[in-house]
Design a binder for these strands. Sequence first.
DNA 1: CCTTTACTTAGCCATATGGATAACCATCAA
DNA 2: TTGATGGTTATCCATATGGCTAAGTAAAGG
Lengths: 110, 110
Amino acid sequence: MDNHQLDALFAALADPTRRAIVARLTEGEVTVSDLADPHDMALPSFLKHLTRLEAAGLIQTRKQGRTRICTLHPEALSEATTWIDRQRTAWEGRLNRLEALLSQPDTPDT
Amino acid sequence: MDNHQLDALFAALADPTRRAIVARLTEGEVTVSDLADPHDMALPSFLKHLTRLEAAGLIQTRKQGRTRICTLHPEALSEATTWIDRQRTAWEGRLNRLEALLSQPDTPDT
DNA sequence: CCTTTACTTAGCCATATGGATAACCATCAA
DNA sequence: TTGATGGTTATCCATATGGCTAAGTAAAGG
């Protein structure tokens, strides 16, 4: 995944309103106004959050009559965990190499 | 984990410079100037990134003489995956319930 | 001591972000 | 067809963010 997409993804998750939206959408599709209802915020402000989530690939929306319906796109979340897991793997690998080095002090280097 | 910490954590990861720093630190401790070296940026600008990573709990630093040494604090990364995994679990749960409902149309509701 | 070296602090600037209003457009219902 | 309803667009505003330079401190090194 490209760096810029990761920026958008992590930035999208770096806001409580947007995380709440994601959490809500795990329960299924919701219309914009129903989604907005629990958030004490003007609709246009709320809309901007939706737009950012959509730009980050975290949600998808479609228009049905005059209402817009939002659905979660959970695949985007794995892009985030993939990056994180890569870091963790690298870290573990380093620890393992260190450990190996300490348990075999006979061959300090090749 | 508290909402505000998650904000800081995800925001910290939403920048390529900072992700590069994290990636670099998976290989072990590095001093500030060595860390900064590959980044085409004035030191004070770079320092601000370090500060944000530290505030997010992603790295820890200590002073040794006049140099500062940075180390990764990978536990912070799991705070992020924990939240993400919770969302994924919720989503899967909903899918499973849906599936169950469809395969057993005899008991539509209790 | 004096000078690097390695950060640190203090400001400054442009752009991005999160919020608001006001006004507009497009259904649906009566 | 006339409201009301559900979004949408266009601005606007304050603060945050990511970059900079200039000037400061503090530990080595000679």
